[in-house]
Amino acid sequence: MKKTTLKDIAKALNVSVSTVSKALHDIPEISEETRVLIQNYAKEKNYRPNYNALSLKNKRSKSIGVIIPNMLNYFYMQVLQGIEKEAASHGYRIMTTISNESYQKEVEIIDMLSTGSIDGFLLAISKETEENGAFSHFTDSVKFGFPIVMFDRVSEHVDCDKIITDDLNACADAVSYLVKQGCKRIAFVSPLKSLSIGRLRFEGYKKGLEQNNLPLDSNLVINTNEADYKQYDKMIKPLFDHEIDGLISTNESSALSAMKLAKENGYKIPENLAVISFANGILARNSHPRLTCVSQHGEIMGAVAAKKLIDKLEKRDDAKSYTTEFIETDIVVRDSTR
């Protein structure tokens, strides 16, 4: 049975979604007759707002909804750690959910938590949402009084605060680092083509080549939307039909596949091929050789995102003013580079 939404109630009663939201949260800006009509209809249709929820204007639940795209990404675990520590220091709890890269799941989570359970959202956009270009569930959330702070994966189409790494310049710096190591044929491997972070890292790769007077060779670029790490070997294999001496990957798993294929093709790492990956997780520290990484400092990102949202909720920041903050990256040098 389809769950009744705010939009369903608004359409049935010929009122705005905003009016429905206000009625269900007892905000005294609508008539008593309208409020009772909406609340009775909501009960009849088994709409499940928290009727003991705190008033949007005057009180808060002191809970924050967190949405991450997947639970297998160590970087998001670092972000969650930063969020939890910062939230707890201000007396807030977090409710962590996982979209599993699904647009529909993301919509359901927003709908479920926007019933008074939480005061605002911290989230990284799912892959499917970015590919669909469908962001109304976010803009509606803000409109209904639930502020959002996006981290890592963000959208320019949503007016909200954003906490990101400078992916473009971080990748350009990685190219320059490899050039200083003596590399001249630097490959780029990414299974994140459709994501904002993937696009920015590819632009950074091209910028880094240009800054170092190196040509862009399409034969050295693997830029796809492949989500299944089991297919990475097949995806990357054509790269080794060409001469390369450096490689930048947008995630750890594809970097490890590239190193395995390099060894199979007679390369010694880092003597013949230097490899850098984004993220700085468990795989990088335990690979052989250990992987040099662009560290995105996930815990710092999470803490900054949480503080930004709490400042909004407690009126220390202008509710209608939005900023984008950058978390600095650095290169953690290990054994996969000279």
Rank of each mutant, 00 (worst) to 15 (best):
D330A: 06
G120C: 00
F202K: 15
Y322G: 04
M259A: 15
R201P: 05
Y267I: 06
K59C: 05
P238R: 09
V154S: 06
Y51F: 13
M77R: 13
L72N: 14
K143M: 10
A303D: 00
I186S: 03
L200Y: 10
T4P: 00
V17D: 11
E328G: 08
V175T: 01
M71T: 12
R60D: 02
L291K: 04
S253A: 14
K2Q: 15
Q78T: 11
Y41S: 09
N40D: 14
E101L: 01
T97Q: 09
C293G: 05
N70V: 02
V20H: 06
I125R: 05
D335N: 14
S61A: 15
M71G: 08
L122D: 03
S176G: 07
I244G: 02
C160W: 04
D111H: 15
I94Y: 08
E101Y: 03
D166I: 01
E84F: 08
Y74K: 06
K43Y: 12
Y74A: 10
V304C: 05
L72S: 08
I244F: 01
I222N: 07
R48G: 05
E84A: 04
Q296D: 03
S257Q: 03
F326K: 13
T34S: 13
L309Q: 00
L256C: 05
V17E: 11
E271K: 14
E33V: 12
T97A: 14
E32N: 11
N100Y: 11
A124F: 00
S218I: 10
S136I: 09
E33F: 15
V20C: 13
N40H: 15
S176P: 00
F240P: 04
K59Y: 11
R35A: 11
L273Y: 03
F135I: 00
L13R: 11
G82C: 07
G182W: 02
T97N: 12
K315A: 03
S190R: 09
R48M: 10
K11Y: 08
K230E: 15
T19Y: 08
E108Q: 10
N40V: 05
S126R: 01
H137Y: 09
G120F: 00
S102Q: 13
D245E: 03
R290I: 14
L54D: 07
K207N: 06
Y76C: 05
I331M: 13
I269Q: 12
P289Q: 06
I282Y: 06
S63D: 08
L239D: 00
I310Q: 03
K260W: 02
N272C: 07
T337M: 10
M301G: 05
K127V: 09
S194P: 04
A274F: 04
I197D: 00
S194A: 11
S136L: 06
I186R: 02
L256G: 01
V20Y: 04
L72Q: 14
G145M: 01
R316L: 07
I269V: 11
A134E: 11
S218R: 14
V17L: 14
C160T: 11
A262L: 01
L209M: 12
P69Q: 11
I310G: 00
Y322T: 09
L54W: 04
S136V: 10
V36Q: 10
Y76N: 06
E210H: 09
G266E: 11
